[in-house]
Design a protein around this nucleic acid. Structure first.
Length: 479
DNA sequence: ATGTGC
Protein backbone atom coordinates (compact mmCIF):
# COMPACT_ATOMS: atom_id res chain seq x y z
CA UNK A 1 0.00 0.00 0.00
CA UNK A 2 1.04 3.59 -0.55
CA UNK A 3 2.27 5.24 2.59
CA UNK A 4 5.57 6.78 3.48
CA UNK A 5 8.02 5.41 5.97
CA UNK A 6 8.90 8.27 8.31
CA UNK A 7 11.08 6.26 10.66
CA UNK A 8 12.36 2.75 11.19
CA UNK A 9 9.17 1.91 13.08
CA UNK A 10 6.46 4.14 11.62
CA UNK A 11 4.61 4.56 8.33
CA UNK A 12 2.26 7.45 7.64
CA UNK A 13 -0.67 7.55 5.23
CA UNK A 14 -1.70 10.96 3.96
CA UNK A 15 -5.35 11.83 3.49
CA UNK A 16 -6.68 10.45 0.22
CA UNK A 17 -10.18 9.85 -1.09
CA UNK A 18 -12.74 9.95 1.69
CA UNK A 19 -10.23 10.01 4.54
CA UNK A 20 -10.87 12.82 7.02
CA UNK A 21 -7.57 12.41 8.87
CA UNK A 22 -4.21 10.85 8.03
CA UNK A 23 -3.40 7.43 9.51
CA UNK A 24 -0.24 6.10 11.12
CA UNK A 25 1.01 2.53 11.31
CA UNK A 26 3.71 1.43 13.70
CA UNK A 27 5.60 -1.42 12.06
CA UNK A 28 9.20 -2.10 11.12
CA UNK A 29 10.00 -2.98 7.52
CA UNK A 30 10.27 -6.69 8.35
CA UNK A 31 6.73 -6.90 9.74
CA UNK A 32 4.61 -7.66 6.73
CA UNK A 33 1.18 -6.10 7.20
CA UNK A 34 -1.52 -7.40 4.86
CA UNK A 35 -2.96 -4.90 2.36
CA UNK A 36 -6.55 -5.69 3.32
CA UNK A 37 -5.84 -4.65 6.93
CA UNK A 38 -4.28 -1.37 5.79
CA UNK A 39 -7.26 -0.72 3.54
CA UNK A 40 -9.54 -1.24 6.55
CA UNK A 41 -7.39 1.16 8.58
CA UNK A 42 -7.68 3.84 5.91
CA UNK A 43 -11.44 3.27 5.70
CA UNK A 44 -11.65 3.93 9.45
CA UNK A 45 -10.04 7.32 8.76
CA UNK A 46 -13.20 8.16 6.79
CA UNK A 47 -15.63 7.55 9.67
CA UNK A 48 -17.93 10.37 10.75
CA UNK A 49 -16.39 12.07 13.79
CA UNK A 50 -12.94 10.51 13.32
CA UNK A 51 -10.03 12.39 14.93
CA UNK A 52 -7.19 9.90 14.92
CA UNK A 53 -6.41 6.48 13.44
CA UNK A 54 -3.45 4.35 14.46
CA UNK A 55 -2.32 0.87 13.49
CA UNK A 56 -0.17 -1.16 15.87
CA UNK A 57 2.45 -3.71 14.74
CA UNK A 58 0.11 -6.71 15.02
CA UNK A 59 -2.43 -5.18 12.62
CA UNK A 60 -4.50 -7.76 10.74
CA UNK A 61 -7.83 -8.05 8.96
CA UNK A 62 -10.94 -8.01 11.14
CA UNK A 63 -14.67 -7.40 10.77
CA UNK A 64 -15.03 -3.81 9.50
CA UNK A 65 -12.07 -2.48 11.47
CA UNK A 66 -8.66 -4.20 11.59
CA UNK A 67 -7.52 -5.95 14.74
CA UNK A 68 -4.62 -4.04 16.26
CA UNK A 69 -6.06 -0.58 15.67
CA UNK A 70 -6.90 2.54 17.65
CA UNK A 71 -9.70 4.79 16.39
CA UNK A 72 -10.53 8.06 18.21
CA UNK A 73 -14.00 9.46 17.53
CA UNK A 74 -15.78 12.62 18.63
CA UNK A 75 -19.58 12.65 18.70
CA UNK A 76 -19.87 9.08 17.38
CA UNK A 77 -19.24 5.54 18.55
CA UNK A 78 -18.38 2.48 16.46
CA UNK A 79 -19.20 -1.05 17.69
CA UNK A 80 -17.06 -2.63 14.93
CA UNK A 81 -14.03 -0.70 16.24
CA UNK A 82 -14.40 -2.59 19.53
CA UNK A 83 -15.19 -5.94 17.98
CA UNK A 84 -17.16 -9.00 19.02
CA UNK A 85 -15.17 -10.01 22.07
CA UNK A 86 -15.80 -6.92 24.20
CA UNK A 87 -13.15 -6.57 26.93
CA UNK A 88 -11.12 -9.48 25.81
CA UNK A 89 -8.01 -8.95 27.88
CA UNK A 90 -5.09 -10.18 29.93
CA UNK A 91 -4.43 -10.81 33.60
CA UNK A 92 -1.07 -11.67 35.13
CA UNK A 93 -0.66 -13.32 38.56
CA UNK A 94 2.70 -13.79 40.22
CA UNK A 95 3.81 -16.54 42.61
CA UNK A 96 6.73 -16.87 45.04
CA UNK A 97 7.62 -20.15 43.30
CA UNK A 98 10.56 -20.90 41.07
CA UNK A 99 10.90 -23.07 38.01
CA UNK A 100 11.33 -26.61 39.27
CA UNK A 101 8.93 -26.10 42.17
CA UNK A 102 5.89 -26.77 40.01
CA UNK A 103 4.92 -30.01 38.32
CA UNK A 104 3.28 -28.28 35.38
CA UNK A 105 1.70 -31.47 34.00
CA UNK A 106 -0.08 -32.12 37.26
CA UNK A 107 -1.03 -28.47 37.79
CA UNK A 108 -2.42 -28.21 34.28
CA UNK A 109 -4.55 -31.30 34.85
CA UNK A 110 -6.06 -29.93 38.03
CA UNK A 111 -6.73 -26.54 36.41
CA UNK A 112 -8.48 -28.30 33.59
CA UNK A 113 -10.83 -29.98 36.03
CA UNK A 114 -11.91 -26.59 37.39
CA UNK A 115 -11.91 -24.39 34.30
CA UNK A 116 -13.94 -25.44 31.24
CA UNK A 117 -11.99 -24.91 28.00
CA UNK A 118 -13.41 -24.28 24.54
CA UNK A 119 -16.56 -22.98 22.93
CA UNK A 120 -20.02 -23.26 24.38
CA UNK A 121 -18.90 -24.32 27.83
CA UNK A 122 -20.70 -23.43 31.07
CA UNK A 123 -19.49 -23.18 34.64
CA UNK A 124 -20.94 -20.95 37.35
CA UNK A 125 -24.70 -20.95 36.95
CA UNK A 126 -25.86 -17.77 38.66
CA UNK A 127 -29.31 -16.62 39.62
CA UNK A 128 -30.75 -13.74 37.62
CA UNK A 129 -30.44 -11.07 40.30
CA UNK A 130 -26.81 -11.84 41.02
CA UNK A 131 -25.96 -11.96 37.32
CA UNK A 132 -27.69 -8.60 36.79
CA UNK A 133 -25.53 -7.19 39.57
CA UNK A 134 -22.39 -8.56 37.86
CA UNK A 135 -23.36 -6.90 34.57
CA UNK A 136 -24.09 -3.57 36.24
CA UNK A 137 -21.19 -3.39 38.69
CA UNK A 138 -18.50 -5.81 37.60
CA UNK A 139 -15.99 -7.13 40.12
CA UNK A 140 -17.36 -4.98 42.96
CA UNK A 141 -20.65 -6.90 42.65
CA UNK A 142 -18.85 -9.95 44.04
CA UNK A 143 -18.63 -8.22 47.40
CA UNK A 144 -22.40 -7.75 47.49
CA UNK A 145 -23.55 -11.15 46.33
CA UNK A 146 -24.40 -13.42 49.24
CA UNK A 147 -22.23 -16.23 48.08
CA UNK A 148 -22.68 -18.41 51.15
CA UNK A 149 -26.27 -19.04 50.09
CA UNK A 150 -25.36 -20.59 46.78
CA UNK A 151 -23.65 -23.89 46.09
CA UNK A 152 -22.28 -22.52 42.80
CA UNK A 153 -19.75 -20.48 44.75
CA UNK A 154 -18.11 -23.44 46.47
CA UNK A 155 -14.38 -23.42 45.77
CA UNK A 156 -14.20 -19.70 45.05
CA UNK A 157 -12.23 -17.85 47.69
CA UNK A 158 -12.73 -14.20 46.82
CA UNK A 159 -11.16 -12.64 49.92
CA UNK A 160 -8.58 -10.90 47.75
CA UNK A 161 -11.17 -9.17 45.57
CA UNK A 162 -10.64 -5.74 47.08
CA UNK A 163 -6.86 -5.94 46.69
CA UNK A 164 -7.22 -7.24 43.13
CA UNK A 165 -9.54 -4.40 42.16
CA UNK A 166 -6.73 -1.89 42.62
CA UNK A 167 -4.82 -3.70 39.88
CA UNK A 168 -7.63 -3.98 37.33
CA UNK A 169 -8.29 -1.28 34.73
CA UNK A 170 -11.36 0.71 35.90
CA UNK A 171 -11.11 -1.34 39.11
CA UNK A 172 -12.99 -4.01 37.17
CA UNK A 173 -16.23 -2.06 37.46
CA UNK A 174 -17.89 -0.04 34.71
CA UNK A 175 -21.32 1.55 34.54
CA UNK A 176 -23.31 -1.21 32.86
CA UNK A 177 -27.06 -1.50 32.36
CA UNK A 178 -28.90 -4.78 31.94
CA UNK A 179 -31.75 -2.95 30.18
CA UNK A 180 -29.42 -2.43 27.19
CA UNK A 181 -28.50 -6.15 27.09
CA UNK A 182 -30.78 -8.35 24.98
CA UNK A 183 -32.45 -11.31 26.64
CA UNK A 184 -30.56 -13.57 24.26
CA UNK A 185 -27.21 -12.12 25.38
CA UNK A 186 -28.24 -12.37 29.03
CA UNK A 187 -29.26 -16.01 28.65
CA UNK A 188 -26.03 -16.90 26.87
CA UNK A 189 -23.97 -15.25 29.57
CA UNK A 190 -25.68 -16.39 32.74
CA UNK A 191 -23.99 -19.81 32.84
CA UNK A 192 -20.64 -18.89 31.24
CA UNK A 193 -18.72 -17.16 34.01
CA UNK A 194 -15.39 -18.79 34.90
CA UNK A 195 -14.96 -20.37 31.46
CA UNK A 196 -11.96 -19.78 29.21
CA UNK A 197 -13.49 -19.86 25.72
CA UNK A 198 -11.73 -20.85 22.51
CA UNK A 199 -9.60 -19.33 19.76
CA UNK A 200 -6.56 -17.51 21.07
CA UNK A 201 -7.74 -17.57 24.67
CA UNK A 202 -5.44 -19.37 27.07
CA UNK A 203 -4.12 -19.88 30.55
CA UNK A 204 -0.36 -20.28 30.69
CA UNK A 205 2.01 -21.26 33.43
CA UNK A 206 5.10 -19.24 32.55
CA UNK A 207 8.58 -18.63 33.87
CA UNK A 208 10.20 -15.20 33.98
CA UNK A 209 13.01 -15.80 31.54
CA UNK A 210 14.57 -12.34 31.63
CA UNK A 211 13.92 -9.11 33.51
CA UNK A 212 14.76 -6.30 31.11
CA UNK A 213 14.18 -3.41 33.50
CA UNK A 214 15.23 -4.41 36.99
CA UNK A 215 13.78 -1.48 38.88
CA UNK A 216 10.33 -1.68 37.32
CA UNK A 217 10.46 -5.48 37.30
CA UNK A 218 10.91 -5.40 41.04
CA UNK A 219 8.12 -2.87 41.33
CA UNK A 220 5.81 -5.27 39.45
CA UNK A 221 6.94 -8.16 41.67
CA UNK A 222 8.86 -9.95 38.90
CA UNK A 223 12.23 -11.66 39.15
CA UNK A 224 14.15 -14.17 36.99
CA UNK A 225 13.19 -17.84 37.19
CA UNK A 226 9.88 -17.02 38.90
CA UNK A 227 6.66 -18.86 38.07
CA UNK A 228 3.78 -16.63 36.94
CA UNK A 229 0.33 -17.32 35.47
CA UNK A 230 -1.19 -15.45 32.55
CA UNK A 231 -4.91 -15.51 31.72
CA UNK A 232 -6.29 -14.41 28.34
CA UNK A 233 -10.08 -14.42 28.02
CA UNK A 234 -13.07 -12.21 27.33
CA UNK A 235 -16.82 -11.81 27.51
CA UNK A 236 -17.71 -15.13 25.79
CA UNK A 237 -21.15 -15.53 24.24
CA UNK A 238 -22.54 -12.48 26.03
CA UNK A 239 -20.08 -9.99 24.53
CA UNK A 240 -20.36 -11.63 21.13
CA UNK A 241 -24.13 -11.28 21.17
CA UNK A 242 -23.96 -7.64 22.33
CA UNK A 243 -21.28 -6.68 19.80
CA UNK A 244 -23.16 -8.33 16.94
CA UNK A 245 -26.48 -6.81 17.99
CA UNK A 246 -25.19 -3.23 17.99
CA UNK A 247 -23.16 -3.73 14.82
CA UNK A 248 -26.43 -4.71 13.12
CA UNK A 249 -28.23 -1.66 14.56
CA UNK A 250 -25.47 0.71 13.45
CA UNK A 251 -25.57 -0.83 9.98
CA UNK A 252 -29.31 -0.14 9.75
CA UNK A 253 -28.83 3.45 10.89
CA UNK A 254 -25.71 4.76 9.16
CA UNK A 255 -24.98 2.46 6.23
CA UNK A 256 -25.44 5.30 3.74
CA UNK A 257 -23.09 7.71 5.50
CA UNK A 258 -20.39 5.14 6.32
CA UNK A 259 -17.18 4.15 4.51
CA UNK A 260 -18.55 0.63 3.86
CA UNK A 261 -21.43 -1.56 5.07
CA UNK A 262 -19.35 -3.37 7.69
CA UNK A 263 -17.85 -0.16 9.06
CA UNK A 264 -20.81 1.79 10.41
CA UNK A 265 -21.27 3.96 13.48
CA UNK A 266 -23.83 5.49 15.83
CA UNK A 267 -24.09 9.23 16.56
CA UNK A 268 -23.75 9.75 20.32
CA UNK A 269 -27.04 11.64 20.44
CA UNK A 270 -28.83 8.52 19.17
CA UNK A 271 -30.49 6.52 21.95
CA UNK A 272 -28.96 3.33 20.56
CA UNK A 273 -25.45 4.75 20.97
CA UNK A 274 -26.11 5.33 24.65
CA UNK A 275 -27.55 1.83 24.94
CA UNK A 276 -24.46 0.40 23.22
CA UNK A 277 -22.19 2.12 25.73
CA UNK A 278 -24.17 0.67 28.65
CA UNK A 279 -24.25 -2.79 27.06
CA UNK A 280 -20.53 -2.63 26.22
CA UNK A 281 -19.88 -1.78 29.87
CA UNK A 282 -22.02 -4.74 30.95
CA UNK A 283 -19.95 -7.05 28.71
CA UNK A 284 -16.77 -5.45 30.06
CA UNK A 285 -17.95 -6.18 33.59
CA UNK A 286 -18.64 -9.79 32.62
CA UNK A 287 -15.12 -10.20 31.21
CA UNK A 288 -13.46 -8.61 34.25
CA UNK A 289 -15.41 -10.96 36.53
CA UNK A 290 -14.71 -13.91 34.24
CA UNK A 291 -10.94 -13.39 34.47
CA UNK A 292 -11.25 -12.68 38.19
CA UNK A 293 -13.07 -15.96 38.85
CA UNK A 294 -10.58 -17.95 36.79
CA UNK A 295 -7.79 -16.28 38.78
CA UNK A 296 -9.51 -17.48 41.97
CA UNK A 297 -9.53 -21.04 40.59
CA UNK A 298 -5.87 -20.78 39.63
CA UNK A 299 -5.06 -19.61 43.15
CA UNK A 300 -7.13 -22.42 44.66
CA UNK A 301 -5.15 -25.04 42.79
CA UNK A 302 -1.73 -23.53 43.50
CA UNK A 303 -2.58 -23.17 47.20
CA UNK A 304 -3.84 -26.73 47.38
CA UNK A 305 -0.36 -27.76 46.30
CA UNK A 306 1.85 -25.10 47.92
CA UNK A 307 -0.05 -23.83 50.96
CA UNK A 308 -1.14 -20.27 51.52
CA UNK A 309 1.19 -18.53 49.06
CA UNK A 310 0.75 -14.94 47.87
CA UNK A 311 -0.46 -14.70 44.28
CA UNK A 312 -1.15 -11.03 43.66
CA UNK A 313 -2.52 -9.64 40.41
CA UNK A 314 0.14 -7.56 38.64
CA UNK A 315 -2.53 -6.10 36.37
CA UNK A 316 -5.68 -6.89 34.42
CA UNK A 317 -5.96 -5.01 31.14
CA UNK A 318 -8.60 -5.07 28.38
CA UNK A 319 -7.59 -4.92 24.73
CA UNK A 320 -11.04 -4.62 23.10
CA UNK A 321 -12.79 -1.57 24.47
CA UNK A 322 -13.96 1.98 23.74
CA UNK A 323 -13.34 4.57 26.45
CA UNK A 324 -13.90 8.29 26.82
CA UNK A 325 -10.45 9.80 27.34
CA UNK A 326 -8.87 13.24 27.18
CA UNK A 327 -5.95 13.60 24.78
CA UNK A 328 -4.34 16.97 24.07
CA UNK A 329 -7.22 18.71 25.80
CA UNK A 330 -9.86 17.02 23.60
CA UNK A 331 -12.34 14.36 24.70
CA UNK A 332 -12.43 11.37 22.39
CA UNK A 333 -14.09 8.00 22.43
CA UNK A 334 -10.91 5.98 22.02
CA UNK A 335 -11.69 2.61 20.45
CA UNK A 336 -8.99 0.00 20.99
CA UNK A 337 -9.57 -3.19 19.01
CA UNK A 338 -6.82 -5.68 19.65
CA UNK A 339 -4.88 -2.80 21.15
CA UNK A 340 -3.76 -2.34 24.74
CA UNK A 341 -3.96 0.87 26.72
CA UNK A 342 -0.46 1.86 27.88
CA UNK A 343 -0.82 4.80 30.28
CA UNK A 344 2.23 6.58 31.61
CA UNK A 345 2.68 7.28 35.33
CA UNK A 346 0.85 10.62 35.19
CA UNK A 347 -2.28 8.91 33.84
CA UNK A 348 -2.21 6.20 36.52
CA UNK A 349 -3.24 8.48 39.38
CA UNK A 350 -5.29 6.69 42.06
CA UNK A 351 -3.79 3.34 41.15
CA UNK A 352 -0.87 1.42 42.71
CA UNK A 353 1.23 2.35 39.67
CA UNK A 354 1.07 6.17 39.88
CA UNK A 355 4.86 6.20 40.37
CA UNK A 356 5.87 3.97 37.44
CA UNK A 357 3.15 3.67 34.80
CA UNK A 358 0.74 0.99 33.73
CA UNK A 359 1.81 -2.63 33.41
CA UNK A 360 1.18 -3.66 29.80
CA UNK A 361 0.64 -7.36 29.10
CA UNK A 362 1.34 -8.62 25.58
CA UNK A 363 1.10 -12.35 24.92
CA UNK A 364 2.95 -13.99 22.09
CA UNK A 365 1.41 -16.87 20.21
CA UNK A 366 1.07 -20.26 21.88
CA UNK A 367 4.50 -21.68 22.53
CA UNK A 368 6.35 -18.37 22.22
CA UNK A 369 7.31 -15.66 24.70
CA UNK A 370 5.01 -13.06 26.26
CA UNK A 371 6.08 -9.62 27.43
CA UNK A 372 5.41 -7.31 30.32
CA UNK A 373 6.01 -3.65 29.47
CA UNK A 374 5.28 -0.33 31.13
CA UNK A 375 3.60 2.79 29.76
CA UNK A 376 5.70 5.85 28.95
CA UNK A 377 4.92 9.58 28.36
CA UNK A 378 6.25 9.36 24.78
CA UNK A 379 3.24 7.17 23.87
CA UNK A 380 1.02 10.24 23.60
CA UNK A 381 1.34 9.98 19.81
CA UNK A 382 -0.39 6.58 19.81
CA UNK A 383 -3.00 7.80 22.32
CA UNK A 384 -1.14 5.70 24.88
CA UNK A 385 -1.78 2.47 23.03
CA UNK A 386 0.21 -0.52 21.88
CA UNK A 387 -0.61 -3.82 20.20
CA UNK A 388 -2.22 -6.79 21.98
CA UNK A 389 -0.27 -9.75 20.68
CA UNK A 390 1.85 -11.11 17.86
CA UNK A 391 -0.78 -10.78 15.14
CA UNK A 392 -1.76 -13.42 12.62
CA UNK A 393 0.15 -14.09 9.43
CA UNK A 394 -2.09 -16.98 8.38
CA UNK A 395 -5.87 -17.28 8.45
CA UNK A 396 -7.41 -19.93 10.68
CA UNK A 397 -8.51 -21.94 7.66
CA UNK A 398 -5.09 -21.74 6.00
CA UNK A 399 -3.34 -22.93 9.16
CA UNK A 400 -5.47 -26.06 9.59
CA UNK A 401 -6.22 -26.79 5.96
CA UNK A 402 -9.90 -26.89 6.83
CA UNK A 403 -12.29 -25.13 4.53
CA UNK A 404 -14.65 -22.48 5.79
CA UNK A 405 -18.24 -23.66 6.21
CA UNK A 406 -17.19 -27.11 7.38
CA UNK A 407 -20.71 -28.41 7.96
CA UNK A 408 -22.08 -28.32 4.47
CA UNK A 409 -18.89 -28.94 2.58
CA UNK A 410 -17.77 -31.96 4.50
CA UNK A 411 -17.34 -34.02 1.36
CA UNK A 412 -14.91 -31.68 -0.31
CA UNK A 413 -11.29 -32.56 -0.11
CA UNK A 414 -9.37 -30.90 2.63
CA UNK A 415 -6.91 -28.27 1.54
CA UNK A 416 -3.37 -29.10 2.37
CA UNK A 417 -2.57 -27.85 5.84
CA UNK A 418 0.04 -25.13 5.72
CA UNK A 419 1.50 -26.43 8.95
CA UNK A 420 2.53 -30.06 9.13
CA UNK A 421 2.12 -32.15 12.28
CA UNK A 422 5.86 -32.43 12.71
CA UNK A 423 6.41 -28.68 12.32
CA UNK A 424 3.70 -28.05 14.89
CA UNK A 425 5.23 -30.53 17.33
CA UNK A 426 8.66 -28.99 16.86
CA UNK A 427 7.34 -25.50 17.61
CA UNK A 428 5.69 -26.77 20.80
CA UNK A 429 8.68 -28.79 22.03
CA UNK A 430 9.17 -28.57 25.79
CA UNK A 431 5.76 -27.00 26.39
CA UNK A 432 2.96 -29.00 27.95
CA UNK A 433 -0.22 -28.42 25.94
CA UNK A 434 -3.76 -29.20 27.06
CA UNK A 435 -6.56 -28.24 24.69
CA UNK A 436 -10.27 -28.85 24.25
CA UNK A 437 -10.21 -29.29 20.49
CA UNK A 438 -7.22 -31.05 18.94
CA UNK A 439 -8.60 -30.71 15.41
CA UNK A 440 -8.45 -26.93 15.42
CA UNK A 441 -5.40 -26.33 17.59
CA UNK A 442 -3.19 -25.58 14.56
CA UNK A 443 -5.19 -22.40 14.08
CA UNK A 444 -3.14 -21.16 17.00
CA UNK A 445 0.19 -22.63 15.95
CA UNK A 446 3.19 -20.33 16.45
CA UNK A 447 3.76 -20.50 12.67
CA UNK A 448 0.38 -18.81 12.08
CA UNK A 449 1.58 -15.71 13.95
CA UNK A 450 4.25 -13.06 13.58
CA UNK A 451 7.44 -13.18 15.63
CA UNK A 452 6.59 -11.56 18.98
CA UNK A 453 10.16 -10.31 19.48
CA UNK A 454 10.01 -8.35 16.22
CA UNK A 455 6.63 -6.92 17.19
CA UNK A 456 7.95 -5.82 20.58
CA UNK A 457 11.02 -4.32 18.90
CA UNK A 458 8.71 -1.92 17.06
CA UNK A 459 6.76 -0.97 20.19
CA UNK A 460 9.93 -0.30 22.17
CA UNK A 461 11.81 1.27 19.24
CA UNK A 462 8.94 3.69 18.61
CA UNK A 463 8.94 4.63 22.34
CA UNK A 464 5.35 3.47 22.86
CA UNK A 465 6.29 1.38 25.92
CA UNK A 466 9.34 0.15 27.81
CA UNK A 467 10.03 -3.61 28.02
CA UNK A 468 10.13 -4.93 31.58
CA UNK A 469 10.22 -8.72 31.37
CA UNK A 470 10.16 -11.60 28.90
CA UNK A 471 8.11 -14.61 29.98
CA UNK A 472 8.38 -18.14 28.58
CA UNK A 473 5.52 -20.67 28.58
CA UNK A 474 5.96 -23.98 30.39
CA UNK A 475 2.37 -25.17 30.05
CA UNK A 476 -0.64 -23.91 28.17
CA UNK A 477 -4.36 -24.58 28.49
CA UNK A 478 -6.36 -23.74 25.36
CA UNK A 479 -9.93 -23.88 24.09
C1' DA B 1 -13.81 -13.96 18.96
C1' DT B 2 -18.52 -17.04 18.49
C1' DG B 3 -24.00 -22.87 20.89
C1' DT B 4 -18.04 -20.91 13.64
C1' DG B 5 -24.70 -20.17 9.52
C1' DC B 6 -30.17 -18.63 6.65
Amino acid sequence: MQGKRVSKYKVEFDRTGKMKVPAALYASESLKIEDSAIRQLLDAAALTGVRKVIGTPDLHHGYGVPIGSVVALEGTICPAAVGYDINCGMRLLTTPLERGDVDVVEMTQSLRRDIPLGEGKSNVRMNKNDFRLVLEKGVSALREIKRKDHRVWEGFNLDETHADMQAIEEHGSMDGDTAAVSERAFERGISQLATLGGGNHFIEIQVVERVLDEKIGERFGLHPNQIVVMIHSGSRGLGHEIGGHYMRISKQKTRDSSPNPSLTYLPLDDREAQRYIKAMHAAANFAFVNRHLMAALVRKNFRHEFGDIAMPTVYDVPHNMAKLETHGGEDYWVHRKGATRAFDAARMKDTPYADVGQPVLIPGSMGTASYVLVGTPTADESLFSVNHGAGRTMSRTAATGRRPGWGKRRREKRQEAAISDSDFKRAMRGIHLVCADKRSIKEEAPQAYKDIDEVIETVVGADLAVAVARLKPLAVLKG
